[in-house]
Simulated assay, not measured.
Amino acid sequence: MCLPAAVYAKTIMILGDSISAGYGLQPQQGWVTQLQQRLNQQYPKKHQVVNASVSGETSSGALARLPRLLQTYKPHIVVIELGGNDGLRGQPPQILQQNLGKLVSLSQQSQATVILLGMKIPPNYGQAYTQAFEKTYLSVSQQYKVKYLPFFMKGIAGHPQLMQKDLIHPNAQAQSILLNNAYPYIQQALHAKP
């Protein structure tokens, strides 16, 4: 008989921008709150989710905040959902790649398992920029050997009925899709030994 792998109590920190901060939503509607609810159902009283996301956050801003966050919360898992604002500002992809790499490295140095949620941006800046932007996530995931979800907004982007009026931020209806996109990666990390 095969017993399921033990699940160790873990703190999961979400380091993101407006998509994870729940911009334009009631606090209880966001995917991060839904993540805590799902974990409570599946693993009662085991896991704590810390939402360290800030609307408008860039990879540089998150990098400035991360050391204190790691010290304060000592997360076992860090989920990085950043880059959209870097892309919308036309930041060079090399800078995003450097910053994401440092975010991953700092998290790993504090013994956290890292999950990288990839982003794509509209083709406003041309195909070369768009491709270079998307490739940063793959490059960082390979360099630091972290799990990465190629596109966190899969199944939402391009569907106006799942977006707020600004067509940038997912609406309340889309939050369960975001959770379902990220959850297999988070659940896998929960089963890893501390």
Rank of each mutant, 00 (worst) to 15 (best):
P93G: 07
K74V: 13
L167N: 15
G90E: 05
G61Y: 05
Q143I: 02
Q175N: 08
Q42L: 14
Y137R: 05
S53N: 13
Q111H: 14
G83E: 05
L149A: 09
S60P: 00
S107L: 08
K165Y: 08
P170K: 03
S176W: 06
P44R: 03
I156R: 01
E81L: 13
Q71F: 09
M163P: 02
K46I: 05
G83F: 05
L117V: 06
L69A: 15
A52T: 10
E57K: 06
N171W: 08
S176E: 11
K154W: 05
Q94K: 15
K145T: 14
L63D: 01
Q164T: 07
L138I: 10
L162T: 04
Q111I: 08
G83V: 12
I115S: 02
Q131K: 13
V114S: 01
P93Q: 00
H76M: 09
L66D: 04
K46P: 01
V146N: 04
E81A: 15
V49C: 05
I156E: 07
Q48K: 10
L117N: 01
N171H: 08
S139Q: 11
Q94Y: 02
M153V: 04
K45P: 00
A132G: 11
V50N: 00
L69I: 06
P67W: 01
K74S: 13
I115Q: 06
L167W: 05
K46Y: 12
L63E: 11
L63K: 03
S107I: 14
G87K: 02
L70K: 01
T58L: 11
R89V: 12
R68I: 09
S176H: 12
S105K: 13
G126Q: 13
P150D: 02
Q127E: 13
Y125P: 00
I121C: 03
Y125T: 00
L96K: 06
Q175R: 02
T113V: 11
A172S: 11
G56C: 14
K147P: 04
K74E: 09
G87Y: 00
G56K: 14
Q111V: 03
T113R: 10
Q173S: 14
L103C: 10
K102P: 00
H169M: 05
P44C: 08
N51V: 07
L63A: 11
Q71P: 02
K45S: 14
